[in-house]
Design a protein around this nucleic acid. Structure first.
Lengths: 364, 364
DNA sequence: CGTCGGAAGTTATACGTAACACCTAGGGAG
DNA sequence: CTCCCTAGGTGTTACGTATAACTTCCGACG
């Protein structure tokens, strides 16, 4: 039964293009978008046929000519499928949730960009978990997640923060997180150890032996790995010495921590290896305050390879992480899981960017 | 009619808590989430009543006791409304689209954060238009927008880029854009002119007279305003001279442009006023290359007030824009428009952050 | 004593899509 | 001549929600 104000417009009018299209829409409230039924009556076919054609499932079920008519009618009317209706029908939303500690960090913004790009190529969307700033326990993401979700990608989150996601039986992909953690359908990790090893070789080659690790004092897997990587890379190197000082994230606390360590008695470290580029910027400021020149008096290295690294003077030697690739691969893994395919494995390589902030230490 | 595998479970069992709740879900496919109908049969009421209670529209229509039963049943079952179904029914999605030139810019990430916060407080979500990097003409946002939308917030977009949105009859709020532009339901702008005036006074007070404006060579309203603001602020100041050099966005092109201008013959500018903090970082590098010290030989100012400004050595004097507030107010304006209220008007103030990169010029 | 009205629900429906099951005509095989 | 098969569709349903319209019960009032 059709409602009275939308009469069974005669399928006969099918071949007159825009006129028929307009006619099919007549009697509708003005602002409303055309539905598949409008397309159907404009093309002179049933709604089911429209759905088949536009859903690309018509091979052998609809004639080439009819399919053409349908597509043209859809174009004329500017038809867009109602995603709410589609999601309701299918029980899937083609939407993934990306959970990151802080979107205002360039790193995670780039992860998002990578994930969104791959998602878009597959007709998927990415929504963000609107988390408060800072790495920390997240509130229940499903209280605020706007859309029903097909899956979740979580980047560098503290282990405990994801409990609510765990309980939701959604496919979960974890980025840059403990690969031993059970539960996630896939992991995407970086070969941090290899990068740190190469960075260490670079510094050792320049003659550095006394290292100060400015470590991020944050409960995140990635920083655990970084700390371990430095320890491992320097273990067994004759004469090498590694001290560690912890600092909260941010330029200021990096400066404070480095300044305090540089003022400490005893032989001064010649290489300040920092857990991210912001901490490294802080370390540079600390050195500056103490009248030390970079890289002549002290070398500084960053981590992540953000824009900041090349904005500083001198530019930072840093380990550049392929943030977009991390996001892209995370999304690809999620798509694979959703389609029942095995996700790609293997760690992503990081690249060593040698710049002006490292040089041979002056002979004492 | 109920489907055979979901029998009309007797409303009698209503008072036995979890057991009844579980019973109401029996016979359902395992992974599926409970629906309002499951809550209804667990509470021993009809689905309509559940909808009334949880939708907070039950005053005078449902007894206090029944409402309590319904809420408890919903809690027991972990019921979440199906947003797709709700959107389909209501024709509204409680979702806004935020269109920004580039999410990897800290400024726009902060705009997003501000908008998302206000949105969340009102049960709204924010999705991003997955735009390619860089300010430029966007593709049709509705091809890729995942969700049906209730409105659009566009920040600092080139005028032409929004044509498809214009055609969509969705409420549009524009941030930091030409207020003369007709169409948008609301504008949120910054009092750039005032900020530049104060920054100019600061520099004039220090004794600067020769200004070099490192201008962003980008077709965006915000940079048009900035250029005009410098010209206006210095117009009529005796002895003041304003030169302009254009540069693409980014540290490197800022450095190149500034370097070239500083090498030019004639009296050297003493103040490099830059269109954003990244260009300013480039200007600092340019000065460094020429052996000029900041702020002794030349002062440099930024724009935006990003983290970068305090990561540099010396820290940048800059105009700090309240990015979160811009986003928050944009979202608030959109909500107002959607509810038929008049949006708040009036420009947001910017604050002058005086730091180490500006000082009195040395007497020639 | 009739009935009016509010309180407390319930029944039924529509939103737009995808897909299953069904239908019809025409042609070829037996 | 009958039967069946295939191409090319159509009719119908369900997804989960919000809400308009209806029902029922009960107390009060004329």
């Amino acid at each position: 039964m059709t409602s009275p104000e939308r009469p069974e417009s005669a399928p006969v009018a099918a071949r007159s293009g825009v006129r028929a299209a307009r006619a099919a829409m007549s009697g509708r409230p003005a602002g409303s978008r055309p539905t598949s039924r409008d397309v159907a009556s404009a093309a002179g076919v049933s709604q089911a046929t429209v759905s088949l054609v536009l859903g690309d499932k018509w091979r052998g079920r609809v004639s080439e000519r009819t399919a053409g008519l349908v597509r043209e009618a859809a174009r004329e009317l500017g038809y867009r499928p109602n995603l709410a209706a589609r999601s309701l029908r299918l029980g899937r939303t083609r939407t993934a949730l990306l959970v990151v500690p802080a979107m205002t960090s360039e790193f995670f913004a780039r992860v998002y960009a990578g994930a969104a790009k791959v998602a878009a190529e597959h007709g998927f969307g990415v929504v963000l978990y609107p988390s408060p700033e800072g790495i920390g326990p997240a509130r229940d993401p499903f209280d605020s997640a706007r859309t029903a979700l097909d899956g979740v990608i979580a980047s560098s989150m503290a282990a405990g923060a994801l409990a609510p996601i765990r309980g939701s039986d959604l496919p979960l992909v974890m980025l840059d997180s403990d690969p031993g953690e059970p539960g996630p359908a896939a992991h995407v990790n970086l070969d941090i150890a290899d990068g740190v090893r190469r960075l260490t070789e670079h510094l050792l080659g320049l003659g550095h032996r006394r290292f100060l690790h400015v470590a991020a004092d944050v409960d995140s897997w990635t920083f655990v790995v970084r700390a371990r990587a430095w320890a491992d890379a320097l273990a067994g190197v004759p004469g090498a010495e590694l001290r560690t000082v912890r600092a909260a994230l941010g330029v200021d606390s990096g400066r404070e921590a480095a300044e305090q360590a540089l003022r400490a008695p005893g032989p001064r470290p010649t290489a300040l290896v920092c857990d991210d580029d912001f901490l490294a910027a802080g370390a540079c400021k600390a050195a500056h305050r103490l009248g030390l020149r970079i890289p002549d008096d002290v070398s500084v290295t960053g981590f992540d390879g953000l824009t900041l690294a090349t904005a500083l003077e001198p530019e930072l030697t840093t380990l550049a992480l392929p943030a977009e690739q991390v996001g892209a691969r995370g999304m690809a893994a999620l798509l694979a899981v959703l389609e029942g395919r095995p996700p790609e494995t293997g760690d992503l390589p990081v690249s060593l960017a040698v710049r002006g902030s490292t040089a041979a230490p002056r002979p004492a």
